Computed example of a mutant assay.
Amino acid sequence: MERVPHRLPPLAALRLFEAAGRHASFAGAAGELGVTPSAVSHAVRTLEDRLGLPLFRRDARTLALTPAGEELLAEATRAFEGLTRVMDRLDGARHQAGLRVSAAPTFAARWLVPRLPRLRRDHPGLTVAISSEQGWVELGDGRYDFAIRMAREPSGAGEWQHLSDIRLVPVAAPRFAGQALAAVLARLPTLHVTSTQEDWDAWAAARGAPPPDRARGLRFDTVHMAVDAAAQGLGVALARLPVCAEDLAAGRVVALDEPVQAGVAYWLVARPGALRQAEGRTFVAWLRRELAGEPVPA
């Protein structure tokens, strides 16, 4: 059955009338809502003209509701109170959950989580819930406010902001420090990441070298697992900067070559409206400051 459209009065005028009815004063309503008494009077007159009924009895000193005004005031107050309760509940739930951020696993584990103590110190009132997922997430379904993803360029819905270009560098266990890359590769297999198989090809193209043999070496589904395996001497991993910068700074692994551009970048993707909220702006500003800073000390 087709629904009949709601026959509503002008809602701005109804809001001014409701305040005037509660205060029994145009001036009181004007003070509450930050408008002039004449604006309240005009809004009430608009409703009266629409209904063809007086809503107030006016004389030089008093303002009293008519029976029609009392009936409309009761319904309007219930409606506005109900809307206020719903808005407060939804807003409270949003603030309780905090900002919801989906980040690629290596970015979350190696870069974002080590910096959360600084986020709490700098912004103690800001709560962030982090989820790590390999695949794309839909920002319009209400689950996330932001996603941090790797891409060559913006694509899809949401508001995209460039965070950092990605650079690639071969790394191995600390005992191989100072040794030539070719010498280490002669002794160790390369380690591969199934979700980023293009990284070794991109590195090889930038260096003008043939890509390594994918048939040799262990395979992992995240970059940070491959870097951990390299730290154990199991092979040569291709680390991503800036997210693996702390592994190098702390000496967990050593670089065997200069970093090269991967041709992709980390992007911040925001759901519509997230960047207009104070919490969203605060988080993004902090994120950019951290990316521009130094690695977290060991």
Rank of each mutant, 00 (worst) to 15 (best):
118 R>D: 13
268 L>K: 09
130 I>A: 06
282 T>L: 15
33 L>G: 08
150 M>C: 12
222 T>V: 02
29 A>L: 11
130 I>E: 06
14 L>M: 12
72 L>C: 09
170 P>Y: 10
8 L>Q: 14
97 A>Q: 09
209 A>S: 10
125 G>R: 12
173 A>Y: 10
150 M>H: 00
25 S>F: 03
20 A>D: 09
140 G>N: 09
135 G>M: 01
18 E>H: 06
48 E>M: 07
124 P>F: 03
1 M>R: 14
212 P>V: 01
28 G>S: 12
147 A>M: 04
85 R>K: 08
96 Q>K: 04
260 V>Q: 11
274 A>F: 02
170 P>H: 06
117 P>S: 06
131 S>T: 15
195 S>Q: 09
95 H>F: 01
8 L>W: 14
250 A>V: 10
151 A>N: 06
184 V>W: 03
281 R>T: 08
149 R>A: 13
120 R>Y: 08
188 L>P: 03
265 A>W: 06
122 D>H: 07
119 L>V: 01
54 P>C: 00
296 V>K: 02
274 A>G: 03
246 E>W: 05
51 L>V: 01
149 R>P: 00
107 F>Y: 13
237 A>W: 11
62 T>K: 06
135 G>Q: 13
151 A>M: 08
86 V>R: 12
48 E>G: 06
109 A>M: 10
167 R>A: 14
160 W>S: 10
19 A>K: 08
181 L>C: 02
111 W>F: 15
139 L>Y: 05
11 L>V: 15
262 A>E: 07
133 E>C: 08
153 E>W: 02
94 R>H: 08
